[in-house]
């Protein structure tokens, strides 16, 4: 490389100011990221607003995949629809295994699609995180309501209409704990637990764009 350049005084001022400014920004940014991923502590509680301002919405950090413990349960989501035929008879369709279809699609695919691996799985996580154990309808305008509409539309898209006009849709989730390894002496209840959601009424507008 060439000899070290000799800077004029104004240039030195610019360089020092830029260096200090950049350094301060980098430190503040990395500090905010650190406080965000660290367990809640005295400092992160004190500066929560500032940390959130930096991290959300574009610098989120989701690195707790498989931590503190890996997921140890399989959730199978099924859906069914109630349709009304041209003659006015109401028909309740069969349960359709939406997760089971995802799993079949993932089998022996070296690069599974987000459509099969993430879409329904994470939609259900979203629903659970906003509803807890209960299935009462979420308040209008809440995140919970968004989760309900999302799941409803996933179910409608996957189940089709069966020829009639869909008036209601219902989901259920079967949660099964993963049995401990064969070489472990641990006992775990692996009986499936079924969680049946209420029927949700369907308007034509709910189907928009799903074809």
């Amino acid at each position: 490389m060439s000899a070290v350049r000799v800077w004029s005084k104004p240039a030195r001022v610019v360089l020092v100011v830029a260096g200090v400014g950049l350094g301060a920004c980098v430190l503040a940014f990395l500090g905010a990221l650190f406080l965000h991923v660290a367990p809640a502590n005295s400092v992160s509680k004190q500066y929560r607003a500032q940390v959130d301002w930096v991290v959300y919405p574009e610098f989120e950090q989701n690195w707790k995949l498989f931590a503190p413990d890996p997921l140890q349960r399989n959730v199978a989501v099924d859906a069914r629809v109630q349709t009304v035929g041209p003659d006015g008879t109401v028909v309740t369709g069969e349960w359709r295994g939406l997760s089971a279809e995802d799993w079949a699609a993932i089998r022996h695919d070296p690069a599974p699609s987000h459509l099969d691996q993430n879409l329904l799985r994470r939609a259900w996580d979203f629903y659970e995180s906003t509803h807890g154990e209960g299935d009462a309808q979420a308040a209008p305008g809440s995140r919970g309501q968004l989760a309900e509409r999302y799941l409803e539309r996933i179910a409608l898209q996957r189940t089709g209409t069966g020829g009639g006009r869909v008036i209601q849709v219902q989901l259920r989730a079967t949660v099964t704990a993963v049995a401990p390894p064969a070489w472990s002496r641990e006992q775990v209840d692996t009986a499936p637990h079924v969680r049946e959601l209420p029927w949700w009424p369907v308007q034509d507008a709910d189907r928009e764009g799903l074809s």
């Binding site: 991923v37 707790k64 498989f66 931590a67 503190p68 997760s99 993963v178």
Partner: peptide, 26 residues
Amino acid sequence: TAGWYKVQGARWQDGTAVFYPLELDY
């Protein structure tokens, strides 16, 4: 983050954690 949070997990402590993701249908 991934490491320090795992240290606190019961499954990572009891040495079986890697088994579980291998049993998830997704």
